[in-house]
């Protein structure tokens, strides 16, 4: 596995039940490639939280994953409403999710802090009315 392995996923916003399919697929790939369960868990959880956000806060989007023996990078891009105040959004407990989302078990305002905790690098680029890109990297130490 000398080269970079690239994976691409489209996240559908209409169907909440399929949210998590992309992260589940990546988890499987990483397992096959023989990464440690610790690394796999970090990537899977960060990606899953981000995937859910794309479904509940944006209109879905695309995910690009790059895997090398040294690191795993996940780039989530959506064309949703954008994030008004990133600093606020990063706080535990901050959420704009509605009642419907809460009934599904999400909207606790824990997603972005979780992603930060599980990854080594995390960058958010966002523009109101245009969309959000969440770029995360997990290093294989």
């Amino acid at each position: 596995m000398a080269d970079t392995m690239k994976l691409h996923y489209t996240v559908d916003a209409d169907d909440f039940t399929v949210a998590g399919e992309a992260s589940g697929a990546v988890k499987k790939v990483l397992k096959q490639l023989g990464f440690s369960s610790d690394i796999i868990r970090k990537v899977a959880v960060a990606m899953y939280e981000c995937e859910i956000n794309m479904v509940i806060h944006a209109d879905g989007g695309v995910i690009d994953v790059e895997i090398t023996p040294e690191k795993i990078r996940m780039i989530h891009s959506d064309k949703g409403p954008g994030i008004k105040d990133i600093e606020k959004a990063m706080q535990e407990g901050f959420s704009t999710a509605d009642e419907k989302v809460r009934e599904l078990g999400f909207g606790a305002g824990m997603g972005l802090p979780n992603m930060k905790r599980y990854t080594d690098e995390m960058n958010i680029t966002t523009k109101i009315g245009e969309g959000t890109v969440v770029d995360m990297t997990v290093y294989v130490k």
Binding site: F106, M110, N114
Partner: peptide, 26 residues
């Protein structure tokens, strides 16, 4: 709260929940 599960749980844990949907399994 699934996000709490994602923040706290360790290996080989049992999850007890009153929430029933596919995202619990995922």
């Amino acid at each position: 709260l699934m996000s709490d599960v994602l923040a706290f749980v360790k290996d080989q844990a049992l999850l007890l929940t009153g929430l029933v949907n596919g995202q619990v399994i995922r």
